[in-house]
Write a protein that binds this DNA or RNA. Structure first.
Lengths: 151, 151
DNA sequence: CTATCTGCAAAATTTTTGCATGGCA
DNA sequence: TGCCATGCAAAAATTTTGCAGATAG
């Protein structure tokens, strides 16, 4: 399995040992279509008959996030930590405060800004964490509809 | 105090009673230059000699967020719930990873970006949580100096 | 072989809840 | 007055940690 192989390489490259727990967690995140929380990952592993402890899940996730193999974010609705694989594309999350859906966007408004800050105050930006929240198109329309009806 | 008055009106408009705890919390968020978590709000209230219980803070914050008088988000780094007033005038933090100093900047690269996102995918931005990290001018120069000396 | 990793149990932290009392409309 | 809101204490939920035994390199 080439995925497992690349996980092994990724772990080694980060100076981490290639254990079945770590590899299994990377596999889960590989398959996921949206960020998952620790419990969801734990349950997915149990379903796949992977023997693991929830505290190990947390520890592995934090380790992988530190090494930037995965990305740690957090959910607005129930504020649990969320994790997703780092495909090294620079993306940001749009979180709808109504339906809690997460929309991924590739564009980033920072290239410009980073340059400006550096010129202005000499601050060198290494990175940033950005979460944008608002209301998605679908919810906006639903809300408008509801308002019309209630008049 | 006109702020207190508008809080009273805002609460009434949402069908909520105007209690000193709710008003005090709205006041704290009014003054804040960035989203605050429940504990920070509680501490700010205690500092201002407002008698309140932490569970009331949580309850009030959730109620206000439901009525959309405030916005609930969550922090990426320590995933705690964050709260800010709905029409937030914000600043951003530049955190130096060397000396941990925090530099406040007023400029925000989002006005442009928000417009673009709205036109493109209909997403209406209510706010955003941004953590920028890098190296400040001072540390940059110190590091360069150290490197020169070690050659 | 040994430094790192995991499981387990227990603790720490954040948030929620039940119930009796208090206070706004 | 009546209902909504708060305080208090206790519980629930999420995440972290210490330690002893297991395992990858």
């Amino acid at each position: 399995m080439s995925e497992t192989l690349s996980h092994k390489e990724a772990l080694q490259h980060s100076g981490l040992k290639n254990t079945k727990q770590r590899s299994a967690i990377l596999n889960i995140l590989e398959k996921a279509t949206q960020p998952l929380n620790a419990d969801q990952i734990y349950l997915a592993l149990v379903t796949e008959k992977v023997a693991i402890n929830l505290s190990t899940v947390y520890r592995v996730l934090n380790t992988l996030a530190e090494k930037e193999l995965i990305i740690k974010t957090s959910s607005v609705s129930d504020n649990k930590a969320l994790f997703e694989r780092n495909d090294f594309k620079h993306q940001h999350h749009l979180v709808c405060v109504e339906c809690k859906e997460i929309i991924l966007v590739d564009e980033c408004p920072f290239e410009e800004y980073e340059k400006k800050l550096n010129e202005k105050i000499g601050f060198t930006i290494l990175g940033h964490q950005l979460e944008i929240y608002g209301i998605c198109d679908k919810c906006q329309k639903r809300i408008e509809e509801e308002n019309k009806r209630s008049i």
